[in-house]
Amino acid sequence: MALTAGDTVPDVTLMTPTADGPKSVQSAETLGTGTVVLFGVPGAFTPACSDTHLPGYVLRAEELKEKGVDTVACTAVNDAFVLGAWSEARNADDSVLMLADGNADFAKAAGLDMDGSKFGLGTRSRRYATIIKDGVVQWIGVEDAPPNVDVSGVESVLKQL
């Protein structure tokens, strides 16, 4: 069953890119304090993710902070090296915390995994955005189709804050 408002964030090990290499973090700890906007994407460097989804959050990071968001985070079923390169390529380093879900553990635990094998992608995350306060989901918007960036885009999140 997919994550819904009122649910607690699943606790799994994720990886985040750092200057010293990948670092493991627990999702419940990383997403469990303050107000967090977490958005999930099917994959780094894919068209909608790179051209629309991530850039929206990077460009409007200050507006999110002004509305009380402590952390903006992105999760994808990629490794930390790929997310680090993607963050650097899209100038997201200072505004979006990248959380690599290489084995789709978080996506599966949240009920937000999808089968992308017909595109050669295997198990991936659905495209979504969620507002989390102290580890509890307040709102979540999940896209009906992977290329759409409507309910999960930064504009929708700003309206919910």
Score class of each variant (00 low, 15 high):
V9A: 00
G68E: 08
D51L: 14
D113N: 14
D7A: 08
P42K: 07
G40P: 10
P47K: 13
D70Q: 06
G68C: 11
A107V: 02
V69K: 02
L112E: 08
T75E: 01
G68Y: 04
R126H: 03
G6V: 05
I140V: 15
V58W: 01
F106D: 06
L14M: 14
E143Y: 03
G120M: 04
A104T: 07
S50G: 14
D20M: 05
T4C: 05
A44W: 08
T33H: 13
M114T: 08
T18N: 06
D79E: 07
N148R: 07
A85R: 06
D79W: 01
D115V: 10
A129P: 12
T52V: 15
T71V: 09
D115T: 09
R60H: 11
P42C: 09
V41E: 11
L99G: 00
W139T: 14
G141M: 08
S125E: 12
L64G: 05
T130F: 01
I140G: 13
K133V: 09
M15S: 10
A28N: 02
T75N: 00
G153Q: 09
V25G: 00
G40D: 11
L54T: 15
N103I: 04
Q160C: 03
L161D: 07
A107P: 06
M15C: 04
P55R: 07
L14H: 06
G32M: 10
Q138Y: 00
M114S: 13
K108E: 14
V9S: 00
G43T: 12
D70I: 03
K118G: 01
S125P: 14
L14V: 12
T123G: 02
T130M: 15
K159L: 06
V12F: 06
K118F: 02
H53D: 10
T4S: 13
A48P: 14
R60V: 02
A44R: 05
A48L: 08
D20W: 04
K65S: 14
D94A: 13
C74M: 14
L161K: 00
V37A: 04
V72M: 05
I140A: 10
T52P: 10
D101A: 04
A80P: 05
